[in-house]
Design a binder for these strands. Structure first.
Lengths: 346, 346
DNA sequence: GTGAAAGCGCTAACAA
DNA sequence: TTGTTAGCGCTTTCAC
């Protein structure tokens, strides 16, 4: 039989009294700090276990750390994020840090501001921003308030670290793959970016740029054909519809993201075209969607776990030393050829 | 030109000084509490704006509330959760509460314990648990420490509120749909539940039970055929493989979740069977996967937004009055017939 | 190595 | 209506 749940939570004072030591001693043991003898440590640890003590994070945060890491996710529907998150939590599993996710809104700067402000207000020890859409200035503002790592933005900064995937290289690999198969009329569907100040930083722009460069270097400059919609299924559908209306139809479509490719596949199915018989389709991100057998979409894998792991590592380093030199990690993607790409029809 | 970022954050004392009032006054304005004249409010508000003051949540939490709601998500990959989350954040958008997600691990009681403990340690004002796998006792323990609402568990409790979807009814609708199409050999793939103490509470068990009852009441008791694997794509694949090995093959498969249906479709494609020509397939949850054109999976929609909205509402009510009578909300699912179900082959 | 005591920023009693 | 004051539970000097 358990006693009725105690009203008052066990505090550090209770532990100190129970172990017959000072609260300072308990605090030191909690933080693995210098200045406590082994005997003291065991004594305190036993008291903690016996009383079932758990430190109050709010109180800790008032003086020291909260042992909390915030991860801002712009869109929890994006099937690529779980991979990154696994990388982060995996790296943090053996530490005292706890991860909490703050839901932003897709393409919503205000929502991003709200959630990052909330993280700062709560004294989080560090923040990882996944593919934020906020302005450069805003990112620097956040990073000046709390250690921060930005994932998926290509610009450098003096205050935060970045982890990115080499989107230019990924796009080039995909184009190369299609050319190897014999394609030359290769179109690309990109995400329309309106803000000129951040355009170069966004992965979507990098993918389009990678496509352009690869086409040029393979002697296909004349065939460059970019449709600008959005990284959504709807965007893919619309983009494909536009491409199908071309007098000279492309024989392959490189969608900037898997979700875009889904829309493309849908439009092609409606148009009665077979994939890859009539037209090849490739995506980007290698989501579970892409690997799903009946779809089997050729895609580019971004090594999400590695991205997340690096982000967590850099963040811990920056928490340890806020003024360390900023680091930019750029990881290499891998091509994953599947059944939606094949030689063009004769 | 901005001055170099100030080292010290603006505190309530700064605001009080700037507005020439007491800190109490500022605190009252912050909380919209009783006892501050309109003039005082405007004066304080102006000072807050001028200084860019934001309250420190940790400090608030030490005495009062943290204005933080924790949502425990067992598996961020489940495409059904975003809907629930939208419902929650939508309901909370106009309040001072901020939502943070705690990533559990799928089917991992320890991970759930870690994240819920972390939420309690951080003084969160309330917790919403989405489809937890933890034991009943553990849920009650959590709810005794902090206002809690449990989503997707059918058991009643005296300390927490619940929001569920009527899984029995949903399964029955699906069976009815298949029978209407002319099927009688309808098999079901369920998630294997090992723990007898929570078996009746889990949605998967309810769906299986709904299937059984519907089959019986439609005079198909003899045809009841349940394969027990797991709610994963792999589970669907294995389940389908087992069913295809039957001497008398089913003409329709009711997968307990869309993700399971994906595995089924994959296995059928490999076996060279056409859907729905040779065999009908239905899922549950109406994920974006299901609605995706080329797949077009018949499924059951759980009204995720409504579930989330109700959970948030109940939680706010419970935060306002921790001892209010527990409420159980049970919502009705809707059948979404699509192209994977059709009359059986002749 | 150890502990006393001061405070982190806020809210809640209470007094004025 | 307003302000004064005492903590909330912890970490951090700084004596010893």
């Amino acid at each position: 039989m358990e006693p009725p749940a105690p009203q008052r939570r066990v505090t550090i004072v209770d532990v100190a009294r129970h172990a017959q030591v000072s609260t300072t001693a308990v605090s030191k043991v909690l933080r693995n700090a210098y200045g406590a003898s082994p005997e003291m440590r065991t004594k305190v640890r036993r008291a903690i276990d016996e009383l079932g003590y758990r430190p109050n994070a709010a109180a800790r945060g008032l003086r020291g750390q909260t042992y909390t890491i915030g991860v801002m996710l712009p869109d929890i529907r994006n099937p690529f994020f779980p991979e990154i998150l696994d990388g982060i939590t995996g790296h943090l599993a053996d530490t005292d840090y706890q991860v909490f996710l703050g839901p932003g809104g897709r393409n919503d700067e205000q929502a991003e501001a709200r959630v990052t402000d909330a993280m700062i207000d709560r004294g989080m020890d560090g923040i990882i921003l996944i593919a934020p859409v906020s302005s450069r200035a805003r990112l620097e503002h956040i990073a000046s308030a709390v250690p921060a790592v930005v994932v998926g933005r290509h610009g450098h900064s003096t205050v935060y670290d970045t982890v990115t995937d080499d989107d230019v290289a990924g796009a080039a690999m995909l184009v190369g793959h299609l050319v190897d198969l014999g394609h030359s009329r290769i179109a690309h569907i990109e995400h329309h970016e309106s803000d000129p100040t951040r355009i170069a930083e966004m992965p979507n722009a990098q993918r389009a740029e990678g496509y352009r460069r690869a086409m040029r270097s393979l002697g296909l400059a004349e065939e460059i054909d970019i449709v600008s919609t959005s990284y959504t299924q709807q965007g893919g559908y619309e983009g494909a519809t536009q491409l199908l209306a071309r007098p000279r139809r492309p024989t392959a479509v490189f969608a900037g993201a898997d979700i875009v490719a889904m829309g493309v596949l849908e439009a092609l199915a409606e148009a009665g075209l077979s994939v890859p018989g009539d037209i090849s389709v490739a995506g980007y991100d290698n989501t579970t969607f892409a690997s799903f057998g009946p779809i089997s979409l050729t895609s580019v894998d971004q090594a999400g776990r590695e991205i997340g792991g690096n982000a967590a590592r850099l963040l811990l380093e920056r928490i340890a030393d806020r003024r360390k030199a900023p680091v930019q990690v750029k990881l290499s993607p891998t091509l994953v050829p599947r059944r939606t790409t094949a030689p063009p029809p004769l």
